[in-house]
Design a protein around this nucleic acid. Structure first.
Lengths: 286, 286
DNA sequence: GTTCCGCATGAATCGATAG
DNA sequence: ACTATCGATTCATGCGGAA
């Protein structure tokens, strides 16, 4: 287990071949999208995307524990006026190779990229595809319910008028849209729709997804002894989420510069106490 | 055109064979979901769903105008712990047969059914698949613009406070200008995520979707001369939406009882004035 | 210490232009 | 005909300096 809590530079397909079978509890990743991030990752053409991804998915399947889960954040591009089919083709091919397609969560991005076209509106959602090896997998549903404690009440009381307005506009995930709704409630189960804004103007580390996203899935699918893998770690968001939650992490990226950024970022992240986590989570979800 | 503003009993595949080519502007429908509503539709097995649907889709393609749009409201069931693949297989097969898969809208069902399962959360979204015959189709984006987001609401509120003070001290200067700056920005284009609650406990007609859903798409893809078709009309929601908006409609259903219900319902629907429509729409979205 | 306001910043897409 | 690049379009968010 010498790969634990490391950020490893390399092609994840090759790097993972050195990993033992059944060693990872959760794989959470957002691979480079087709024709996207050409400068850093070279860009994969839509027509070649499935063939590019499948051998990697084969390694993911091998290293994942039978009770583990694979969450794939992805969205197809518009090509020649149509949504391309590589994502849904990928689902079918992965099933042929042994994956179970358990669920499709929906990430509603409240701050979608602006723009106007004659034939479509702004794209404001992405897929979070859940794959498993077995029908029985670890799931800790209570971990993503929203508890109502004194800290929430206190925070609510201290909210400024502006904050209240903003809390309405910002996002909760399925579990509680704004703080005021929690008052008088004990716990609420979420749905499979997650409302969360992208962190587009975060100058410290601009990431493809907000840290609240991996936090949510790590809490849902792992316990404190678990290992979380992100084979396209990028700026380290998934690893930071895992470390905050006291989980072990492994990050892989083909780009050494990103690995450096992720390692640097992780030195500034410490596991948080439960109360801090709760508050952190609220901020992240807002 | 003797089919206009009629509710026709029969299998839509057979009924549509009597329709001329290129005669429909918008097809909006929510077909019977696989293996559900067994009593009324006889139940279609998930594994047979694609073969069941494709010959109907062939007729839809034929009767649709080249500038028309087909909106398919559908969601795959969970079968044996997995999301079934019949919906994504259907997309691929329809493309092979000439349809363009232009877009996938997301219907976020704000009040999803309660329930709890060990391996999944409540399903609170459905697909609204957009298919077209051609890359160029009719789209009236201005008809569905929405109020600008809450971020502006908060600032607008504060701004107007300031402007009120200014108005008292300085007569007429600056006031109009500041407001007019925001008046131009009070409406924005929507995204491809539609937030709408399901209609619960409507005793007159239990429908698969709220009337606000077809209203939105009818406004987006048709003008007042258009014909809207729903080949699985059920209790008549799509036809009611079309009639309200002053469009022509055609509804088809294999179940005579549903046809009766739809016809009865339509006698109670009248085209509304613009102001009434606006108000109605606001209620539907809330 | 708060709150307010200006401003940069995005996993985008289309159509036109150029090689 | 097929690919690469570029400009125009657009809006929610968070940061940082100002009030």
């Amino acid at each position: 287990m010498d790969f634990v809590n490391k950020i490893i530079q390399g092609d994840c397909e090759q790097v993972l071949k050195g990993f033992p079978d059944n060693s990872i509890d959760l794989i959470f990743t957002s691979p480079p999208y087709a024709d996207q991030r050409k400068t850093t990752y070279g860009g994969v053409r839509p027509a070649e995307y499935v063939d590019w991804f499948l051998p990697k998915a084969e390694q993911f399947l091998r290293v994942l524990k039978p009770t583990g889960t694979f969450i794939l954040n992805i969205k197809e591009r518009a090509v020649n006026g149509e949504r391309h089919t590589y994502v849904i083709e990928l689902i079918l091919k992965m099933r042929e190779r042994g994956w179970l397609w358990t669920e499709e969560f929906m990430w509603h991005k409240k701050n979608a990229y602006p723009g106007k076209w004659p034939n479509r509106f702004r794209d404001s959602w992405e897929r979070l595809l859940q794959f498993n090896k077995r029908r029985k997998f670890n799931m800790y549903q209570e971990a993503v319910m929203v508890p109502v404690g004194d800290w929430a009440q206190g925070r609510l009381r201290n909210l400024s008028e502006t904050d209240k307005i903003r809390d309405e506009s910002k996002v909760g995930s399925g579990f509680g849209k704004n703080i005021s709704k929690w008052v008088g409630r004990d716990k609420v189960y979420p749905t499979n729709v997650i409302h969360m804004a992208t962190e587009c103007s975060n100058r410290q580390h601009s990431a493809a997804f907000p840290v609240g996203l991996p936090i949510w899935f790590i809490k849902l699918f792992t316990d404190s002894n678990s290992i979380v893998l992100d084979p396209f770690i990028g700026s380290g968001t998934t690893a930071a989420a895992a470390k905050q939650l006291g989980r072990k992490y492994v990050g892989i990226d083909i780009n050494e510069e990103y690995c450096q950024i992720a390692r640097q970022r992780l030195t500034q992240v410490q596991p948080r106490l439960l109360e801090e986590l709760e508050e952190y989570e609220v901020r992240a979800m807002q």
